[in-house]
Amino acid sequence: MEVRTIKVFTTVDNINLHTQVVDMSMTYGQQFGPTYLDGADVTKIKPHNSHEGKTFYVLPNDDTLRVEAFEYYHTTDPSFLGRYMSALNHTKKWKYPQVNGLTSIKWADNNCYLATALLTLQQIELKFNPPALQDAYYRARAGEAANFCALILAYCNKTVGELGDVRETMSYLFQHANLDSCKRVLNVVCKTCGQQQTTLKGVEAVMYMGTLSYEQFKKGVQIPCTCGKQATKYLVQQESPFVMMSAPPAQYELKHGTFTCASEYTGNYQCGHYKHITSKETLYCIDGALLTKSSEYKGPITDVFYKENSYTTTIK
Rank of each mutant, 00 (worst) to 15 (best):
V3T: 12
K7A: 12
T11G: 08
D13C: 06
N14Y: 03
H18T: 08
V22G: 08
M24Y: 07
T27I: 13
Q31Y: 14
L37I: 10
I45P: 06
E52W: 10
K54W: 12
T55G: 07
F56I: 00
D62A: 09
A69Y: 11
Y73R: 03
Y73H: 06
H74S: 05
T76H: 09
R83E: 01
Y84Q: 01
Y84A: 07
M85T: 05
S86C: 14
A87K: 04
N89D: 12
K95A: 10
Y96D: 03
P97N: 09
P97H: 11
S104T: 14
W107P: 05
N110E: 04
N111T: 08
N111A: 06
C112D: 00
A117C: 08
Q122N: 07
Q122P: 04
L126D: 04
F128K: 04
F128M: 02
A132P: 06
D135A: 07
A136N: 09
R139A: 13
R141D: 03
E144Q: 12
K158A: 06
G161W: 06
E162A: 07
S171I: 11
L173E: 00
F174K: 06
L179F: 15
K183P: 03
V188D: 02
V189K: 10
K191F: 03
K191Q: 12
K191I: 10
T192F: 09
T192W: 09
C193R: 04
Q196D: 07
T199A: 09
V206L: 04
M207W: 09
Y208M: 07
T211W: 04
F217E: 00
K218N: 00
K219W: 04
V221T: 07
Q222H: 09
P224M: 14
C227N: 01
A231S: 06
A231H: 05
T232H: 02
T232F: 09
L235E: 01
S240A: 05
M244E: 06
A250W: 00
Y252S: 05
K255H: 10
H256Y: 10
G257P: 01
E264W: 04
Y265Q: 03
G267S: 15
N268Q: 09
Y269V: 15
S279N: 08
S279C: 15
E281V: 01
T282P: 04
L283Q: 00
D287F: 05
A289S: 11
L291N: 10
S295L: 14
E296W: 11
Y297I: 08
Y306E: 01
S310T: 11
K316W: 15
K316V: 15
